[in-house]
Design a binder for these strands. Sequence first.
DNA 1: TCAAAAGTTCAAAAATTACTGAAAGTTTAA
DNA 2: TTAAACTTTCAGTAATTTTTGAACTTTTGA
Lengths: 168, 168
Amino acid sequence: MELSEGRLKFIEAWGKLGSEWGINRTMAQIHALLLISPEALTTEEIMEELTISRGNTNMNLRDLIGWGLVEKQHKSGERKEYFYADKDTWNIARQVAKERKKRELDPIIKLLNELSEVKGDDKDRNYKTFRSSVKDINKLAKNVNKTLETMLKAEESWFWGSIFKIFK
Amino acid sequence: MELSEGRLKFIEAWGKLGSEWGINRTMAQIHALLLISPEALTTEEIMEELTISRGNTNMNLRDLIGWGLVEKQHKSGERKEYFYADKDTWNIARQVAKERKKRELDPIIKLLNELSEVKGDDKDRNYKTFRSSVKDINKLAKNVNKTLETMLKAEESWFWGSIFKIFK
DNA sequence: TCAAAAGTTCAAAAATTACTGAAAGTTTAA
DNA sequence: TTAAACTTTCAGTAATTTTTGAACTTTTGA
């Protein structure tokens, strides 16, 4: 396979994966393009490479920056803004985990705690099942939360080393 | 909070979480409803509870069965089909992990292996960056894969026990 | 201070995804 | 073999999400 074909496939696959996980396809594609670009790119270059509009490019770049996956760069003597993606896979994974935890896991845990307080009749089977399901999901959510918190602090080598130790 | 309000909030939240993770909102809501229902429910009951059409209910139930999260039950002397959700959170987590691994991770690993074979000029910076990104993502994907495989085999207690051991 | 170049916004259009409802299919009991 | 009870399918419609593009704002150099 040629490089140009490989690049296209990579961008396409990253976009598909993103959309399967609730991330805008274009945002994932821009990220993919930046991941395989040695230099920071301008809005123009991204627009052209992916054949998308200026507005779309601008908004998705802003989102990527919001996710902490892309940074703006300025080259001295130039007005244009350049965009660069951190290429360290471990940082990317941590960043995504961190954002999704904040946006999704934290609110769900808050709700589950409220739902743990629901009052009802202990003879009511509906009530018993509700309580039990909420309790179990809450427990799982907290385990995941704790694991993520540790992962966010961890060094890559230490993390995988430890994982493999248990999964010997 | 009353049970009826809690049930509604739980169903709503589960649906929202699902849609954030690329799972059809209705499918997640049906799953939520079954999770808090002590008895298996009929299509009619689900339709009524969630105010959705018969066709929608039928298709999403089929998908839930395809994900291994719901099973059909037959009550003797009755023609109707009943639907029941496994309430063991660990089983649910494993089942979801298993399906997403099969549907998404496995194909991505296959592609990354192909992309590792892309030939090019070692002096070309685009080529070098491409190779390096593909290689790193491939490594991460394989680590995740290995961890999931172990998790799929594991007992819950053993799994969390071991996780907490490293995250002491 | 102005105008060119770049960046941002957002209403409208397009694309995608989900849902409905009625028709067709299937199963069972008599 | 018929018909009632139930399930499945899918074309058309609706809802949601994404994208465009043109107007608007900001920045900078002359």
